[in-house]
Nucleic acid binder design. Structure first.
Lengths: 330, 330
DNA sequence: ATGAAAGCGCTAACAC
DNA sequence: GTGTTAGCGCTTTCAT
């Protein structure tokens, strides 16, 4: 900056004033000279120094828990990143494992680097024991909830998602379901099951006729449970799957059994992974709005309005595709 | 820091000395007093200020091109992140789209923030027109190559991967293949095809008997091409798929046709997505070492040895699973 | 063994 | 209109 000043025969103050857009009090002539010098010297302001002086880093600390290695959930990062960029901010990212020690170290490092907000994102809606943070620092959890419940969090409305899935099938006229659920003790499973039960009630159907089979969210269990489900008499007309992976398992099982989708049985997935649209027939599924969750998080984090969030639930809409249709004979 | 000094009745110099581990010349007594004060005041050093003074930010700029939203390739980020963390560094991440303007802006912002290295990662092994960067800044491309060829890059050895796939099948005794390839004009496709042709030659097989069908890397094309492939007489005994997604399509097609894997036909995928291990039977596939690519990149970037990399090709090994076996009658 | 002072690159009162 | 100066929070010579 001193170099620029020398080159343009002005003080560094003038350079600073020109560069920070306070042209108001600077004559056009000097302004042009400074800009020319900046150009000639290929000068670029040091944002680290600016940050120190201004006391702001335009940086969001982002701690992930295996999220990057998980399919499609990187959309959380994409959403955060998009909003951050719009507001001249960047993401300082750390990949922390389950291990609480690592989490604490990561959070502390980010704080030491003066991030202006802290966002933590987990897979599978876990509970976390989040470390202590300075009182004035906005902190937000995505897809996770604090053990002590004092940190605002953004979660998908899994219960609504489960309900959307079955309501979609009810609307098509279906009356016999099996829910191929995921791991029984997972938070997301419990919520989705709750939504499913709500749906049954709305449809006036008895739980005993529309059972829940528990699996583990993996393809294999989707396969096995689909086989089991199709052995019931009368046959279910819709299989609601705990996630898209299990739906893939169901697809393969039904293909092998010679049962056609959606003519003989409708399938609903959950997650709306990229693969869902690619399957044939394309998979009707429930979308988890990861990208939007990231956007909302970044928006509030940067605005310093995290306290308005509380425990925010984001809507999980049904995405109707070709794997669901009216049941046979309707 | 001044507060700590006051609390411990020492100068800030002493505080700094104690905190930076230069205990050498500090008496145990003062050291203890300082540490106590640090504790009491809950003091944490400001790394932004440290960085300014030391002229180092311990930060790697990481520019991604849709990579985060792509399944499993987030492992590149995980690899980078792991090494960075080991070396007390962090990733400053920007999600840039194809748009070159955005890429340039991202790179400039990162440079202004004084990152100590720059890593760009793309999906699908694209060519990029990378912006100008300061001569002393380590820059590295992952899964991408510079239009002007002057930037070191780390790419998967797709040709070797294609060859590994077919060699694995040859070793099992197969002699009739169809290669269900991906988009014909993609760089990765060309390389994989080249490896496939090498393999045919090694096995002494004629290309005319072992054709290549081109698709688009999506499930649907895997399905269609598998159907077409199985109509050939004599039937192929192994289907080599351009990626795991196409292999899934093949699985579904074969299930519907009543063809058993691997008894009647062996399947090989490519990518080793998480889903590959979950399929039933589990999918033999070629692994792209994304995580390792990230690690190597971060290691060289931080060590300032990017020039040693040149155009590095990372090995893509076959991962044998249950979808391949000896052909019938062997 | 400890402290005073300079300076990293920048901004912003306050002079002139 | 433009320059002088102080200072953001830290490290590090050089004195003492």
């Amino acid at each position: 900056m001193a170099d620029v000043g020398r080159q343009a025969s002005v003080s560094i103050t003038t350079v600073s004033l020109v560069l920070s857009g306070q042209h108001s009090r600077i004559s056009e002539a000097t302004k042009a000279r400074v800009l020319k010098a900046v150009e000639d010297l290929n000068y670029r302001p040091n944002k680290a120094a600016q940050g120190l002086r201004l006391g702001q880093t335009r940086t969001i600390g982002f701690v992930t828990d295996e999220i990057l290695t998980q399919p499609f959930s990187g959309n959380i990062a994409a959403g955060l990143s998009a909003v951050a960029w719009e507001q001249q901010s960047l993401l300082l990212t750390v990949n922390a494992t389950m291990n609480t020690g690592r989490l604490r170290a990561a959070v502390e490092d980010l704080i030491d680097r003066q991030v202006e907000a802290l966002v933590f994102a987990a897979m599978g809606s876990r509970e976390v024991d989040f470390p202590e943070t300075p009182p004035n620092l906005p902190v937000l959890l995505i897809n996770a909830y604090d053990r002590r419940g004092r940190i605002p969090s953004i979660m998908p409305n899994e219960e609504e998602g489960g309900r959307s899935a079955i309501e979609h099938a009810l609307d098509l006229g279906h009356e016999r379901f099996v829910f191929l659920a995921g791991r029984e003790n997972a938070w997301a499973t419990k919520m989705r099951v709750r939504g499913y039960r709500d749906g049954l009630e709305i449809g006036g159907l008895r739980p005993v006729d529309n059972p829940i089979f528990y699996g583990d969210y993996r393809i294999g269990s989707g396969y096995d449970l689909a086989v089991r489900a199709m052995q019931r008499r009368p046959r279910p007309t819709t299989l609601l799957c705990g996630n898209d992976q299990m739906a893939i398992g169901a697809y393969i099982a039904l293909a092998r059994m010679g049962v056609r989708i959606p003519e003989q049985v409708s399938i609903v997935g959950y997650d709306d992974e990229p693969i869902a649209a690619d399957l044939s027939p394309s998979l009707t599924t429930v979308r988890i709005p990861f990208y939007e969750m990231g956007r909302v998080a970044a928006t509030h984090a940067l605005a310093g309005t995290v306290s308005e969030i509380g425990q925010m639930l984001m809507s999980c809409p049904i995405v109707p595709r070709a794997s669901t249709n009216r049941p046979l004979g309707q």
